[in-house]
């Protein structure tokens, strides 16, 4: 019997890492670190798009989540404030 295990294992790892990073992003006070963690989560999400057999979304999501959104957020932080006060 032909058993394909590796892609399903990668799906499990990617989704668990996504949840792990999501909690850290919400709790992080330093916004620069929060954006870098968001970028890391974007990489795992784009890998999930590839594993779910959506190559179009894979190609779209890499420049959007790794290139444009972090740059916009960094520009915003440079103009406002980089720390979160309670």
């Amino acid at each position: 019997m032909n058993i394909v295990v590796l892609p399903y294992l990668l799906v499990i790892i990617c989704s668990l890492t996504s949840t792990f990073l999501a909690y850290l992003i919400v709790k992080e006070r330093n916004l620069v670190v929060a954006i870098l963690l968001l970028l890391g989560q974007g990489i795992f999400h784009s890998l999930l798009y590839y594993l779910l057999m959506a190559p179009d979304l894979f190609i779209t999501y890499i420049p959007v989540s790794v290139g444009i959104t972090p740059l916009l957020l960094f520009l915003l932080i440079k103009k406002t404030e980089w720390r979160e006060y309670d």
Partner: peptide
């Protein structure tokens, strides 16, 4: 502690 909570969440 945050890392531990996140890990237990996953």
């Amino acid at each position: 502690r945050d890392v531990l909570v996140a890990f237990s969440l996953s």
